[in-house]
Amino acid sequence: MPPAILLRDTVSLLGRYPVLAGLDLRVEDGEIVLLRGPNGAGKTSLLRTCAGLLRVASGTATVLGHDLCVDRRTVRPQIGLLGHATGLYDDLTVLDNLRFWARAVRADRPDAIVDSALDRVALAERLRSVAVARLSSGQRRRVSLAAMIVRRPRLWLLDEPHAGLDAEGRDLLDAMIAEAAASGATVLFASHELDRAVAVASRCVTIAGGVVVADDAA
């Protein structure tokens, strides 16, 4: 089984600034890896590089067996990225949004998948035909999570996923991460909620200054 993520001396740039400064990382298929580090360490940039959103300026990067330097497009639909933004159209309803994203990744029976995803994140029935702009930030977070499930990604990249969720939502998220790994997906997530995150993760990678500075079993 090839590793889910294999970065070798990877440099990626934000404008002219090297956010990843020759980073090495290997994540095996099915692992749950916690990414930690101070603000500005490059956690978000690492996740975005793995998602193929930041161009690899030098070194190599292979994700799910695809070389990101050669082709970033084909692998992306297999990756789910949950960032700080919602990735949702504010003016469309929850159902409109999720059905659009489900069809975009060519899901079979998109409407049914969307309904079950919304059930999974426990979003009340009455909120589903409401414009996303009218939801609270925690509710939006749940919809973004539902959008992740709809994609059925083989690689989950989560950036501060616990932020903005209530206690119930955090438990739900942890359960979803565990489920994803159990079904064979790989999870890489950045978090400052160390107690909670360490309980979920099987390994903890610390980065600073755009490189890995520690790599321990959790």
């Binding site: 020759g22 600073a208 200054g209």
Partner: peptide, 18 residues
């Protein structure tokens, strides 16, 4: 002038945590 040489920038970035 807007940027620096990439190697120097990478070295500076790596040194940030030291």
């Amino acid at each position: 002038a807007a940027g620096v040489e990439i190697d120097a920038a990478v070295a500076a970035r790596r040194a940030e945590h030291e």
